[in-house]
Amino acid sequence: MSTILVIEQILNGLQFGVMLFLMAAGLTLIFGVMGLINLAHGSLYMVGAFAAAAVAGATGSFLLGLIAALAAAALAGALVELVVIRRIYNAPHLDQVLATFALILIFSEGTRWIFGSFPLFLDIPKALSGPVTLPGGIQYPLYRLTLIGIGLLIAIGLWALIERTRLGIQIRAGENDREMIAALGVDISKLYTFVFALGAALAGLAGALVGAIQSVQVGMGEPVLILAFVVIVIGGIGSIRGAFIGALLVGLTDTLGGVFLPEFFKLFMETGAAQKTGSALASMGIYVLMGLVLIWRPTGLFGARA
């Protein structure tokens, strides 16, 4: 196992982590600020990918596709908040789970109704395709490097928005005491719609960016949704910083575990069996990580409330 391979795998883990962050950031904001468990977050990821594939397919421009993904997901998010979510803020969590699960089904079958059952085509833009050679002779796809860059920029932007702007103060205040900030004259329902649309837009952007290297198909959001929940539980619910650290931890654990656990078992087992055992354990890796973090810090790494 060469150093080059190790570095390449660390980059892969980082790339996976920052894309997870885009999903988890919206989820943790919505959960933290509104106290809402939104299972339909994965559907917004799918909406972004389909919007990008449709627009990029029609116009030939990946950038227009990205803009369409942001707009479509934000719009879908705002619409869902106004029509459905607004009515269930005070409902028990089980009702919220039920309602947002219904939204998953509606989004999935609606998407199939519009786009059909077959996966759509969305390609990496020409300018970003192919590998580049990094210092040390590592061949790494340019598009994945770009994804890492975009993810880090958005993380910084979100941090600035939450920590340095008036809107961020309102969001943080809403997280702590929604009645008090309503009493102070902040239009709380507008704030909620904005936060929901922002979270949706981030999910849609992640869907579009990842859609270019994966399969744009109905149901693509749900596996990512589960990982995003793991991320926000590890990071601490409501914490953007927690979501960022959690996403990187999950990304690195999942990628490196999948590669190095089978190698580890090969030291004392025969190859086929080592592969099977190693990859079976690797797929549990992030859940073991979550368990350990929760034993150490029951509210997650950056969870505020005890």
Partner: peptide, 14 residues
């Protein structure tokens, strides 16, 4: 090499 991936895996960078 002989590798078993996760069922439903979407990223094959590793």
């Amino acid at each position: 090499g002989e590798v078993f991936t996760k069922l439903g895996q979407t990223d094959y960078a590793a």
